[in-house]
Write a protein that binds this DNA or RNA. Structure first.
Lengths: 245, 245
DNA sequence: AAGTGGTCTAGACCACCAT
DNA sequence: TGGTGGTCTAGACCACTTG
């Protein structure tokens, strides 16, 4: 028996409660959780930490708090929905659900700004900016999943090693001491498939796709990457939870 | 001069700061806001309230807080993006930006569950459920904006007065004392336009549209409505802000 | 009235960035 | 080292639901 010497922080509590929810080890028959005072005692955290955690769980769609009634575990959704408002990697969440995300093809080259297929959604770049273009085809459990085209500012990130291309680019960037990712703007739209894109998805030309464009910024506020992701919307949807008032 | 007798709560502070940001009355030349201690003094709120407000402003994409650096006003986005994570009505936000949202056509009828064009995304309903179907065509500043098909559980909401159909259905429901809206699940997807839908948007058949399906629940956790909204994705995108770590 | 979650206070300490 | 935002404590009071 190892003894718990320091109490849990919010992230650890979220992780713990998430695991217990997924194992069904939390909540009674009506999916009602214990009250906040009881949970505070059980996890040995203060109300602040508990409520931070419950708020994160709610935003991920795992729980719902009803004023004057209680806290409830929510029914599970289909696994192939992407929860926006997620604090963790998509890859990380998928692997936790025992899904296998693979990069089938990846290509990298350095180009001037003019040759980019699209520009950032939310800001202007100097015309002499040099970009690293990365194109990837990724599958989920062997099924065509996402078509990705990203541009990284050459001056900020530098060349990307080949193995990072096939793993998590985000983890690679975080491991670079110079790069302190701060925030991401996402713009969601729709489009139809061109012929060559349709091949990858085994869909026909003109089929609808969900388009997610994002601009990634350093903590300092400087843009360091922007990209466009195309998802097969027949197999993938985006999920969002909104609490009212 | 009226004197401020009670200090601001979070919602009031958000409103005040939002207004000041939109008028450009906040932040210096580099868009940097005053530090938290200064803001606490200026608005006469505690740190808790201030940070709740700043957190809401950030989630709406108005500001960004950089650890160890400061808080910054972010450049304004195009006005025709819908900010998810909004605490307020879409109609309310649009009118604040001086946009004019109009309902061009609205139809209401009561039907059995079987005749619904689609079902809720996240839960099952008894087969004998009776629904109120509402179809609306709405324009923004005179331009085709959204095609809406909603179903309300007849037993929960009852008939909807005609003038509510042409205004905000949400405000009508909130005014009903029985209805306590609690939360909404949204699932975002893409589709292509059918011929009759294309007419409304002045687009051609097969053009891509952004599809937002939502399930609305009472505070008690019971479903009371579900709907499908189709947006012209050439003029409307969804926006989302994600802070990292 | 009792129990639930929602908001707020006042203060402490920590982590990050600049100098 | 001093100033910034990020996290946490311990407690108070309020608003909502149910009996």
């Amino acid at each position: 028996m190892t003894q718990q010497i320091s109490s849990l922080d919010t992230a650890a509590l979220v992780k713990k409660m998430t695991a217990e929810i997924q194992k069904g080890r939390i909540g009674d028959h009506s999916r009602k959780l214990a009250s906040e005072p009881e949970l505070m005692a059980r996890y040995d955290v203060t109300r602040y930490t508990l409520r931070q955690a419950l708020s994160q769980l709610a935003s991920m769609g795992y729980t719902y708090q009803a004023h004057g009634i209680g806290t409830f575990v929510r029914p599970r959704r289909h696994s192939h929905t992407i929860t926006m408002q997620n604090k963790v990697n998509l890859a990380e969440e998928l692997s936790r659900q025992a899904h296998r995300l693979e990069t089938k093809k990846a290509r990298q080259r350095t180009i001037p700004l003019q040759e980019a297929e699209f520009l950032p959604v939310g800001c202007e770049l100097p015309i002499d900016t040099r970009l690293i273009e990365v194109k990837r085809f990724r599958t989920l459990d062997g099924v065509p999943y996402v078509l990705e085209c990203s541009y990284y500012l050459n001056d900020v990130v530098g060349p990307i090693p080949k193995d990072a291309l096939y793993g998590s680019l985000f983890d690679f960037l975080r491991s670079q001491t110079v790069i302190k990712p701060g925030f991401i703007d996402e713009v969601i739209s729709a489009d139809t498939l061109a012929a060559n894109e349709a091949d990858f998805f085994n869909l026909s030309r003109g089929a609808p796709v969900l388009v997610v464009r994002d601009d990634s910024y350093l903590n300092s506020g400087q843009l360091f990457a922007f990209s466009k992701l195309k998802y097969n919307c027949e197999t993938t949807q985006l999920f969002m939870f909104k609490k009212l008032s």
